[in-house]
Design a protein around this nucleic acid. Sequence first.
DNA 1: TGACATACCAGACAAATGTCTGCTATCGTC
DNA 2: GACGATAGCAGACATTTGTCTGGTATGTCA
Lengths: 207, 207
Amino acid sequence: MPKTPPGQTRERVYHYVRERLFEGRPPTIRDVQRAFSFRAVETARGHLETLVREGRLAKRTGEARGFTLPELPAPKLVPILGRVQAGALSTAVQDLEGYVPVESTHISHDLFALRVNGKSMTGAGIYPGDIVVVRRQPTATSGEIVVALVEDEATVKRLRIRNRRIELHPENPDFEVITPSRFQCLILGKVIEVRRFLDKASAPLRY
Amino acid sequence: MPKTPPGQTRERVYHYVRERLFEGRPPTIRDVQRAFSFRAVETARGHLETLVREGRLAKRTGEARGFTLPELPAPKLVPILGRVQAGALSTAVQDLEGYVPVESTHISHDLFALRVNGKSMTGAGIYPGDIVVVRRQPTATSGEIVVALVEDEATVKRLRIRNRRIELHPENPDFEVITPSRFQCLILGKVIEVRRFLDKASAPLRY
DNA sequence: TGACATACCAGACAAATGTCTGCTATCGTC
DNA sequence: GACGATAGCAGACATTTGTCTGGTATGTCA
């Protein structure tokens, strides 16, 4: 039974566990044992417990496959809504185009995604076909890019509040500013992220 | 023991399992039992097995927490490399800025992410501070947006091959076309996705 | 040298978890 | 009504998996 320099194997164990967690397939202690050809379960467990003690991993005691990354939950998928219907703001799972993974920082928020249609925001780097990730919220501050529902149609625009009036500004000279009344316009949320898929193969999966 | 209309409870079980999988925390059968207050494990298992038979879930028999989504592994995180060093193309985990989750479609590929520095690609909707997701590959076809290493510096440009010469085109009139020799230039990969974080809070987590 | 820590092994035990067999009740259909 | 399909229950059992106790070997440091 050869002995490895201190910490060296543990580093590899750590990366192995991470990989597995990123795949969404938490390993058992015996998985780790097998992956590193340890002849005893305790060897694997020793490394894992040490990693927990060092704060590099977290665990749910007694639970099968209970090792996780501390503070870092797995990325969450948010639904890409094909259309946003007026009135019902609840996630319509029916006309679902797919899912996009988002940063785990804001898994607590109510997020959804939307595919951009027109060219009215190209000046802000938002092009047709892009997907915007939206945090659902009823209001926003002036200057932010929002998704608003105007006459039953969802549009992405930059919000400006001038003289207590709502203005929806495009970022493309070919389009005009919309100045809806408070009753015509409903702010669905604020755009927090834009993503463009340059490669067809990387487009979100439909399922 | 009340009985629910056919399929109704199962639908909810399905969504519960999905949620858990998206969180990276595969449920046990007894987790499902508890979540729906079934008085027997078999009830939960019945639904789960049916979902597998219907092809809506997949499972690894006998394994603890073995239920997964078919075809759809959990999203993967790819590293955002702070800098790309010449020569060594291996992922330098050291100067790591964080991780971004990517679509599960291409988990098999060798991906990394890079933060964009200059304004040379604004015409293509790629702005400073954006993060590009790159598929590592030594070559690319003309017209694709690539990450190239020119004189030890990584740049994002549109690749054009004219008269068997490599040209790196910016998408901003303020910048000039680079025409490196084959020896000065190394194609690191092809940009498959662009993402911009409009909200500071949504920026990738450093850890 | 001896005390101590680390890496690893061996085997047993216990808790968590998947699987099976058999049962009741409700609904729709022939 | 008989039949089959579905939803659900009850309890036992088997496997997987986490936990524990005790051991050997090697290195560091006083």
